[in-house]
């Protein structure tokens, strides 16, 4: 290997600074959430305790955290499943040339770039003018899909751009029906990417704020609850909650990455040894 140029060390330092910039603040509130009972929102630490985490479990101190967490969790799962199914179907549809596909594509881009508050406002208006009750599981659910679906579809486009169609042709030559080709050839090949779509679907929904603001009704999701807290809670209990939800997000991400890793390993193991030279 040739020696590293000097620029490598400069850029490495830059990259480390970038990581500190990305993670530093979050780590800081992680530390501050263990603030002693008399501590405030910034350093110095006045002792180390679990005081603020204990506070989270007392209803009157912070409001309905656990209710909003379970709503966000269920909504996240709903959005995740829908995003995966609809994105796969949409991805498959775009491989065929159908009339209107260009319009649909531009709608997807619009859905991606439209200011979130417009979705919130528009959906809220439709619901209120038709006297429907806004609820996180109906209007909130749909509003979130306009954010997660474009990401799911962009991932599907990327996947199918790299997809080798000869696998499908081989299956068809062996007499597989169109459904069998999808079920036994296409889906297993794209499975790891689907985990990625699922991860995006869940986490984007779990963290979404603007699109649920006017569409979730009287029962808040967790981000709405946290935002409400920022205006009236001035103790480290806010940091404790921030730390807990971030840890939860990290666990979710780790789980998904682990599943992808397992899938890839199983695939490597079961892969054909054709051409390996063993007779």
């Amino acid at each position: 290997m040739e020696p590293r140029p000097r620029s490598f060390y400069v850029l490495s330092a830059f990259f480390v600074l970038f990581l500190i910039f990305l993670y530093g603040p979050t780590l800081t509130i992680g530390i501050l959430s263990f603030q002693g009972a008399g501590g405030g929102l910034t350093f110095p630490m006045r002792g180390v305790s679990l005081h603020w985490f204990r506070d989270l479990f007392e209803q009157q101190a912070v409001g309905d955290i656990w209710g909003s967490f379970s709503r966000s969790f269920i909504l996240g799962l709903m959005v995740m499943v829908t995003t995966v199914v609809v994105s796969v179907m949409g991805g498959l549809a775009f491989r065929k040339r159908f009339a209107g596909s260009a319009i649909l594509f531009y709608l997807i881009i619009t859905s991606l770039v439209i200011p979130s508050i417009l979705i919130s406002l528009g959906v809220g208006l439709i619901w209120s003018q038709s006297s429907l009750p806004v609820h996180w599981s109906t209007s909130g659910f749909g509003a979130q899909l306009t954010w997660t679906l474009p990401f799911g579809l962009l991932i599907m486009f990327a996947v199918f751009n790299r997809f080798d169609r000869s696998y499908e042709e081989a299956a068809r030559d062996l007499g597989a029906s169109p459904w069998q080709v999808i079920r036994h050839v296409v889906l297993p090949i794209i499975a790891p990417s689907l985990i990625g779509v699922a991860l995006f679907g869940f986490t984007l929904s779990y963290d979404e704020f603007a699109r649920t603001l006017l569409t979730s009704g009287s029962y808040n999701t967790l981000p709405l609850e946290i935002f409400g807290m920022t205006t009236n809670v001035t103790t480290p209990v806010l940091f404790a909650l921030g730390t807990l939800t971030t840890v939860f997000s990290l666990l979710v991400i780790a789980t998904f990455l682990f599943v992808v890793w397992i899938l890839n390993r199983r695939r490597a193991k079961q892969g054909s040894d054709a051409g390996q030279g063993m007779v």
Binding site: S101, L121, V123, L145, T146
Partner: peptide, 26 residues
């Protein structure tokens, strides 16, 4: 083309109800 449309239906419905209609409403 028909299969393409069938596959794209759920996507189109979501975008129609939660993107196009809200914009029209606004």
């Amino acid at each position: 083309s028909v299969i393409g449309w069938l596959l794209a239906t759920p996507l189109s419905l979501v975008l129609l109800v939660f993107l196009v209609a809200p914009i029209a409403m606004i």
